[in-house]
Amino acid sequence: MPTQLQSRAQPPTFGGGTGAHIALEGVSRTYSARNGAEVQALAEVSLRAGAGELLAVVGPSGCGKSTLLELLCRLQSPDRGSISCPPAVLMPQHDLLLPWLSALDNAALALRIAGAKRAQARARAEGLFVELGLAGFQHARPHELSGGMRQRVAFLRTLLSGKPVLCLDEPFGALDAITRAEMQEWLAGTLAGEPRTVVLVTHDVEEAILLADSVVVLSPRPGRVVAQLEVELARPRRRTDGDVIALRERALAILATGSQS
């Protein structure tokens, strides 16, 4: 186990996100499908992310992006290779808010799991809840919230786990274009105030370039790293900036041809 999954987890640091550091070396993962066939999700994936960075992972559907996040969250172990990652928390594709809890209680779920009483957990969650633009929706049930609001609550639930690494699995994939653009801005703003190391899986190349410090492009199954692009552009970025457009075109070209040339 230690040779496969080298855990160099540092104690979680709050607020600063410093000390987080992700490194994958030659990671492969193969599943047995239900019909007995072997499906290779990831092949020889190596990548790095520095503390406090946002790493975006883009690629066609079925390229093992979700598998990558589950490996980082220790929900799976790699067949080969090593993973070094501080404690990570998952924000799944669907918000998975619990319909019987209010928005505030959903956001505070991690605190309750950590042993806080309901009132305590609420009190501790309330500050960020309001800060993240959810004021007035404390007692709303998930079904009363719009898609964007639900994602905000789900993100806050992830944030309040206190873990240094956030794994976001296509968080805005199900939203309409206008809401998605709004949420991208919101996420950038939120991370500026609450820095964490973030691994963002998305199929939206533009989203990756707007938000990330570094973009990893994966090939179709089995997922291999085709390129890792550094995005050294000043923030805030706009989708209409020439540099953003140029980088987006480059990433799209890599995705289309499956190689960096």
Binding site: E70, C73, L75, A88, V89, L90, M91, P92, Q93, H94, L96, L109, A110, I113, A114, R157, S161, K163, C167
Partner: peptide, 13 residues
Amino acid sequence: DPEQPKLLRTLDA
């Protein structure tokens, strides 16, 4: 939802 237990596990439930 089969994803629900995964989420809860990463929240250390």
